[in-house]
Write a protein that binds this DNA or RNA. Structure first.
Lengths: 139, 139
DNA sequence: TTATGTTTTGCAACGCTGTTGCAGGATAAA
DNA sequence: TTTATCCTGCAACAGCGTTGCAAAACATAA
């Protein structure tokens, strides 16, 4: 059993359960953003749909994962930088490949700041770029 | 009956039907991005849910409206600049107010260009900013 | 190790979103 | 007015996401 997984759960005062371990390990092994459906499919019949939903919700609240918007729906990805319940910093860019369909975080890129019209105040930004990823544009 | 509505339908070789007229007029009168549910609610029992879905799909394909991503789901907004079936330019910013919940297009702002990692090629960009809109930040 | 209180899970059920097939009805053009 | 084409409504379905509740699993302290 992965020690990182155990530590992550402990650090966020979450009980160590099989479902949580498996979901965290799935996020670690696949490196792209995953939807609820991806997880359900990947974990087989091992856990109830509802449990997966609740686990994702818990991880979101604890800052272990973050949402990734997509034209096809909601996906989730591990927070690499250290996030807490009250301090998130997800101003990195999300890239969705129109060829292979995978979505991942471009951690190295940050959203440039933008001058908003008078009176507008930004709290959160979310940039999704769609196109060809490095692997797919080689062909 | 609004002449703009009739022209818009004609220009895109779409038949002039009550449902299409009403949906276009709803987009014109409310100035924010609307979800399917908003339209369904706003139009009452006048049309079948399926018809509204199909109308939105048609308008999307014709370039009359465009998608607006949102943590809560999909919304749609009128294309102000002239878009055609094959030539869209929606690099403007979408703003969602966390107070009043309304989402609108900041047509004046464009997404700054970003240097992607080697091998990545962008086709489409989508920036959603969440925060307080001008009206809500006055209070 | 066992007993305890608290957290998680699975199940059943529900509402909402979005899609498809098909038959009947409306539209535009001759 | 006729006709071919396009739209609409209905029925049905699959998927997403949530809630309430009882049973099971967990962590802690004895």
């Amino acid at each position: 059993m992965n020690q990182f997984v155990k530590n992550t759960l402990k650090d966020h005062s979450l009980r160590n359960t099989l479902c949580r371990e498996d979901i965290l390990e799935t996020f670690l092994s696949r490196e792209v953003a995953l939807s609820h459906g991806d997880l359900e499919h990947s974990l087989g019949e091992k856990f109830d749909r509802v449990t997966i939903y609740r686990t994702l919700k818990t991880f979101l609240e604890k800052g272990i994962i973050h949402k990734v918007l997509d034209e096809e729906g909601m996906r989730y990805a591990l927070c690499k930088e250290r996030c807490t319940e009250h301090n998130h910093h997800h101003d990195h860019v999300h890239f969705k490949c129109s060829e292979c369909g995978q979505t991942n975080c471009l951690e190295s890129l940050h959203i440039p700041s933008i001058q908003l019209p008078a009176g507008y105040h930004a709290q959160e930004m979310n940039l999704l770029i769609q196109g060809l990823c490095a692997a797919c544009s080689e062909n």
